[in-house]
Amino acid sequence: MLRPDIGLPRFSGGPLVPVVTYLLVIVVLSGLVTISPGASPPPVLGMIWGVFLVALTVGTLRIETVSPRSLLPSVRTLGPVIGLVTVFWGLYNLAAVALAMGGISGFEASLSRTAAHPLLYLAALFSSLLFTAIPEEFLFRTYLQQKFTRLAGETTRRTVLSGIGVAAVLFALFHLPRWFLASGHGVSSGLAVRLLGLALMGLAYGSVYALSGNLWLVALFHASMNHPPFLVKVTVPSELHLVVSVLEYTIMVTLVYLTVRVVEPVETPHIWSQGNNHASTGD
């Protein structure tokens, strides 16, 4: 089974808890970026950041009297998760190879670095999964998205969508310290495009989580999007980045939706059900 049998937690804290948590994240992130303003932070700093996010989220959940363990899907779901993400990238690679063979600009019929050095790729993917994707998705989707869904009222499609939207906006703004402090960019049209792309990414990941309720799934999508496993060389022109991203996210969410609705048919998936009053208490 892909989707764990859990519902939306009944958090006991008020609206200030997620606000303070998010502001603390921004402050600490800004400090780390100031210390290491390079394009890619040192591995040790990245590990510290990932551990900090997990520890902060666990602490916040305990303040909310929600057991962090109750929000983690079973390891038995890892098989279906890996299978679904593999299908997504398999289809993507088939399309990329076809475009490369057709001579389409941006797609080369030659092996990518991933195909040439698979072990190095797997190491980078695992590192991204462990210290970036899981910590960030644990905070933004498992906690913030569900918290704002709960704050919006009883669990309906409207409140779930509001939770996805708020978490997506916060996820986009979360990247501002690196934009201003590390990259040295200012306020421009490029910033608007960047924020829009990140917001779309947040909406896609939020939808995947809302449909599946599976942290491993959304985190693996996140990590693999950071390190796309293309078998051929792919270079998307900058003016097409947003268009390609919309296509990627649409296919990703559609694939998860079909899996949940068709392969694992139930009356209502995870937190889309109305009136779900599941409560998780602390250990």
Rank of each mutant, 00 (worst) to 15 (best):
L61I: 06
I63E: 03
G59A: 11
A55V: 12
L61E: 09
I82F: 14
S70Y: 02
A55Q: 08
I82L: 15
P73W: 08
V58K: 10
P73V: 03
L56A: 12
L71K: 02
S74R: 12
T65D: 15
G59T: 07
R62Y: 12
G83M: 13
I63T: 06
E64W: 02
T57A: 06
R69M: 04
S70D: 13
R69C: 00
T60E: 00
T60C: 02
L56P: 04
V85A: 11
G79R: 13
P68V: 07
R76S: 15
G79K: 12
R62W: 12
S74K: 09
V66H: 09
T65V: 03
A55L: 15
T60Y: 01
L84F: 01
T60H: 00
G83Q: 11
T60M: 02
E64R: 01
R69P: 00
I63G: 01
I82Q: 03
S67E: 11
V81E: 00
G83L: 15
R76E: 15
I63P: 00
L71H: 03
G59V: 07
I63R: 07
R76M: 12
L72G: 02
T57H: 05
L56E: 07
V75R: 14
L84P: 01
T65C: 04
V66W: 08
S74H: 10
L84Q: 01
V85N: 05
T60R: 01
S70H: 10
L78E: 00
P68I: 06
L84C: 01
P73F: 09
L78M: 09
I82W: 11
R76W: 15
R62C: 03
R76T: 15
E64K: 01
I82A: 15
L61G: 09
G59E: 05
R69W: 07
V58M: 10
A55F: 09
L61D: 06
I82P: 04
L56G: 04
T57G: 05
V66C: 09
G79S: 08
T60Q: 02
P73G: 05
R62F: 11
V81S: 01
R69H: 04
G79E: 03
S70P: 01
L78V: 08
R69S: 07
R62S: 05
L56M: 14
L61R: 07
T65Y: 06
P73S: 04
L72Q: 04
S70R: 14
